[in-house]
Design a protein around this nucleic acid. Structure first.
Lengths: 245, 245
DNA sequence: TCAATGCGTATGTCCGGACAATCGGACCGC
DNA sequence: GCGGTCCGATTGTCCGGACATACGCATTGA
């Protein structure tokens, strides 16, 4: 019952974060079962030698993640839901790798082009100014799965074709010190044109899943704009949305 | 320059929330322009007669919303991004109404059925037990736009056909005191079957956008499971994803 | 001229306490 | 038996202060 919680005050890791991690691990591990009370904050703080605000900060971070629910006069309990996968800015490459597949990438185009009006508007750049353009084909089991065309503002990143084939675009951006923050996505469907059909190994007129996305870093700067088409038999979008009051 | 901020201590609305609302309004209204500094927290607290933790709580809530960025040693500034629409658990009805369209709904089925294995698993109910089943057709400008089949756990809500045609399912649930919290969605595409094509006024084999969703309330209980098909020429999903570190 | 150092400033973390609001159950009266 | 009321428990809000940490800039030194 009484969890094995402790904090290391000599660690540079914030105390509230240490506690949050341990609580999250306990939930994931099953030591804290869904619906079980967490014990009141005051006592928890006393037991750990922390102040109540610190304990609250830890709990609050897990509430924000959707793992805990607070109810005044009752206490804090673990949510019943089994699905508590975090909603994430989905990276196709990471998704596939997590699913145990080994995605292959073929870079079709990696160059600098003048920005069209659409791209310039999405990236907040000047129309006709230089932008990077990358076209890639993603394959699984030797079969094409997605065709992706991405634009990046100039000077943001050195796009090495070899690296692009070995890993995902998001991972390269993170490695370059860019903190991805949010993305605006539009997902739709349409019939494949002749060119798209041939690229993806489908018949002309076959249904395609389309996605258009602009990604922003933590300063609100647009760092990527992309237009993707997916073979719906091989890929669908799966994610969790949180309600923001 | 100096914003017209003030708080009402006699109001039951929390002080940090009052401040957050005023700051958000100032940003939306343009009084705080993208990139501009917010002024340091200490002075802001002194000016408003609040303590620093209260001011921080207000600022933090806006940081979580993606409107502000904090940088240590620099200050807090408004993000540059123009798109700061909140990500929301999209309600088709609300989306359409916000877009100025007057959606019409035709309830095809509103009954209680035994749960199939799939529905039971999604709702966390017993297989074969009672669940509500609602089939609806959503129309805009007299043309069908989406076909929606939803399941709800028993005893959660009285589903009145008249109300269902007048408003959206989410709005009914909120009105019944259910606090929607998160949803797990899967979006894909496929060719329309003969039955789907006829329902939606498309040709057989035409591309359809499909969505499957399970919605949870704030206690983690599944409150709705639905399978929807959309005409891609008339609807696409648009939303904002936040990265969770 | 250019790089390393130091300093001011702002946010990040943490503390200890106080009172209010709300929930649930126990108690009491009818 | 039943309903309303009171009360303990727990989270929600707010305060004032303290020190740590990181960023940007000016100064200093080579």
């Amino acid at each position: 019952m009484s969890l094995d919680l402790s904090v290391d005050r000599s660690s540079p890791v914030p105390l509230y974060f240490q506690l949050a991690q341990q609580l999250e691990a306990s939930i994931e591990h099953g030591a804290l079962t869904p619906g079980s009370l967490l014990g009141n904050e005051i006592e928890l703080a006393a037991r750990l030698g922390l102040s109540r605000p610190t304990v609250r900060q830890a709990i609050q971070s897990l509430v924000d993640k959707g793992l805990l629910v607070r109810r005044r006069g009752v206490g804090t309990q673990v949510v019943h839901s089994k699905v508590r996968r975090p909603l994430e800015l989905s990276s196709l490459f990471d998704d596939l790798e997590a699913a145990g597949q080994r995605p292959a990438t073929k870079v079709l185009v990696n160059t600098v082009v003048p920005a069209t009006a659409e791209v310039a508007a999405a990236l907040g750049a000047a129309e006709g100014g230089d932008v990077h353009r990358v076209e890639r084909l993603r394959l699984t089991h030797g079969e094409p799965m997605a065709y992706m065309c991405n634009y990046l503002p100039p000077g943001l990143l050195d796009l090495d074709t070899g690296q692009l084939e070995a890993t995902g675009l998001y991972r390269l951006m993170r490695a370059a010190g860019i903190t991805l923050h949010s993305a605006r996505q539009t997902i739709g469907a349409r019939a494949a044109t002749d060119g798209e059909a041939e690229r993806l190994g489908e018949d002309a007129g076959a249904p395609l899943l389309t996605m258009e996305r602009t990604t922003f870093d933590d300063t609100g700067r647009a760092v990527e704009f992309g237009t993707h088409t997916y073979r719906p038999s091989r890929y669908s979008f799966e994610f969790q949305l949180l309600v923001r009051s």
